[in-house]
């Protein structure tokens, strides 16, 4: 074979190897892309609004049932449950409820709840004015607490949705938190709001 052909082959091989490397990178790029995609489309029921809602009108022509569900991963020993299983609200009306948490272990622990909304279509219409899930929750051994939640359902909520389920999974963050325990103590006041 001619020399030029050898050179060509080498160049092609290098290009293909670069393409393979780029695809390796692409595999990792899928991680943020996935988050962005879910954010835009609201596919995983996590793009709800946080903070004060600019909703002034209350729609008294219908009510929406909001259900509360809690879940603990296998290695999470806390008792964690909603004070009320479900509430009927008028869209646009501020509602307050609370969740109960108890640390039955003999160790100081930190946890955080991660929320999810079903159906995911309803997620953008559920405004959380204040939620315990915004912050980490430390609890001493044997201690318990009530964790507040203030929310509004947007009156724009599509009319075919009559029930919204708000689910919380409570994760143990003690291990990642021991190192920065001082920081936690600092914002303890805010967390147990």
């Amino acid at each position: 074979m001619a020399e030029s052909n050898d050179k060509q082959t080498k160049r092609l091989a290098v290009r293909l190897a670069t393409a393979a490397l780029a695809m390796f990178g692409f595999g990792f790029a899928l991680v943020p892309l996935y988050d962005v995609f879910c954010d835009i489309t609201g596919l995983n029921g996590k793009n709800f609004k946080q903070g004060a809602a600019e909703i002034s009108t209350v729609d008294r022509s219908r009510t929406v049932k909001v259900q509360f569900v809690t879940a603990n991963p296998a290695d999470m020993p806390w008792d964690f449950k909603p004070n009320e299983r479900s509430i009927r609200v008028f869209p646009g009306e501020d509602k307050q409820t609370a969740f109960y948490a108890k640390n039955p272990t003999s160790n100081w622990m930190v946890a955080q709840a991660v929320p999810s909304v079903t159906p995911s279509e309803a997620a953008p219409y559920l405004h959380k004015v204040n939620c315990f899930c915004f912050d980490r929750q430390p609890l001493d051994a044997g201690a318990d607490t009530e964790m507040p939640l203030v929310f509004v359902v947007d009156p724009e909520l599509p009319s075919h949705i009559s029930t919204i389920t708000l689910s919380y999974a409570l994760y143990d963050l003690t291990e990642s938190q021991t190192v920065t325990q001082t920081n936690i103590n600092k914002d303890k006041g805010r967390a147990s709001l």
């Binding site: 393979a20 695809m23 692409f26 595999g27 899928l30």
Partner: peptide
Amino acid sequence: LIAVMPVLAGVVTM
């Protein structure tokens, strides 16, 4: 193969 085997390598690396 060049397009997807690296993605497999990526997922096992994760």
